[in-house]
Design a binder for these strands. Structure first.
Lengths: 166, 166
DNA sequence: AAAAGATTATAGCCTCGGCTATATTTTGCA
DNA sequence: TGCAAAATATAGCCGAGGCTATAATCTTTT
C-alpha cells in the first residue's frame, strides 16, 4: 500500500455521485405509488367510465382498506379528488402524471420486447422499471426503438427476417 | 354499448397478470434494501478492507442510526453478521446476493450506455432499475450487448463509426 | 494513561403502505 | 318499497425505513 491513510472512499466525487443516485432512488420510490394509482385510475375511467376503490383493489391485489388509505394520501397530495362513497377522479395534476407514466410504461415495455424479452416477463419487469427511467433515458429508449423500426422495415423489404433476437 | 353489464376489467386474464406484476413489484421493493447494502458492503470491503456503519451512511446519504437499524434487520434476515462496535461482514448468502446484484448492476449500466444514455444519468437510473430486472430480462440485455459488441467490431474493422447513438 | 474525538448503539418519534375486523352507506333486485 | 348484497369508511394493528438526540464504546493523540 503506497499510502497507509486511505480515505474511506477511493474518490470523493464518486461518493457524491452515488449519494445523489441513492437520493434519486429514494425519491422515486416515494412517487411510485402515485404513478401506479394515477395510471390505473386513468385506465379504469377509460375502460369503464369510472374508477372505484374495489376495482383498484382487485387490480393491484391489495385490500380495499389499503386503497382507501392510499387514496387519502393521494388526495392530500393533490393527485385525486373524491367524496365519501363516490368514485375517484383525477385532478389536472393526476391526469398529467397518468399520461406521463403511461407513456413511459409503454416505451419501457416496447424496449424490453424489442430486446427479445417475452411478453409476460416484459410486462412484469416494466411495472417496476418504469418508475426509475429518467427523461433522458426515456429519450434514449425512444431513439433506439425508432432506429430499430427503420432497420426492420429495410430488412423486411429485402426479404430478411426482423432484427429482434431469435 | 353492446353489453350494458360490462365487467370491471375488460379481461380477467389481464387483471390476473397485472396482479402478479404488482405483487412482484412489491416483493422487489422489499429486497431492494438488502441488495443495495450487500453490494455496498462488498465494495467497501474490497476497497478499504472493512465495512463500517459510518462509511455506509456516508455513501448512501443517510444517518448512521438508519444504517444501524437496517443492518440489524439484515442480520436477522441472514445477510450480514456483526458484533457490537465492530465492522460489518457479509454471510455466504450476503456475498452471493452482492455478487448477483453487482453483476446485474453492471449489465444494466452497460445497456443504458450502449443505448446512448450519458454516464451520470446511466449511473443514477441503473441504481433504481437494477432491482426490477428479472433473470430473463437480464439475459436479453446480455444478448443485446454481445451482439452490439460484435457489430461494433465489424464496423470498426471496415472503418465505420460505432453503432452507439450519437 | 487520560482526555478528546470518532464511531457505534439506543431510545423515541415519524410516515408509508400493508393488513383484519367492524361499521356505514349505496345500490340492485324481488 | 324494502331488504340483501355490494361498496365504502373507520379503527387499530404491524413492519420497513427514515429522523434526532443522547449514551456508550472504541481509538488516537498528547
Amino acid at each position: 500500500m503506497p499510502d497507509p491513510a486511505i480515505p474511506p472512499a477511493a474518490n470523493a466525487d464518486d461518493t457524491e455521485s452515488q449519494v445523489r443516485a441513492f437520493e434519486q432512488h429514494r425519491r422515486q420510490r416515494q412517487s411510485t405509488l402515485a404513478e401506479d394509482y394515477c395510471e390505473l385510475i386513468a385506465d379504469l375511467i377509460a375502460e369503464t367510465g369510472e374508477a372505484r376503490a374495489t376495482d383498484i383493489a382487485r387490480r393491484f391485489g391489495v385490500s380495499h382498506a389499503t386503497v382507501v388509505n392510499s387514496i387519502g394520501r393521494l388526495q392530500k397530495a393533490g393527485f385525486v379528488s373524491s367524496q365519501p362513497y363516490r368514485s375517484i377522479f383525477l385532478t389536472e395534476i393526476g391526469r398529467d402524471l397518468a399520461a406521463r407514466s403511461k407513456r413511459r410504461h409503454v416505451i419501457v415495455l416496447r424496449l424490453l420486447e424489442a430486446l427479445g424479452v417475452d411478453a409476460e416477463t416484459a410486462r412484469a419487469d416494466a411495472e417496476g422499471i418504469e418508475h426509475h427511467v429518467s427523461d433522458a433515458t426515456l429519450a434514449a429508449f425512444e431513439r433506439f426503438l425508432t432506429a430499430r423500426e427503420a432497420q426492420d422495415k429495410v430488412a423486411s423489404a429485402s426479404g430478411l427476417k426482423g432484427s429482434s433476437s431469435s
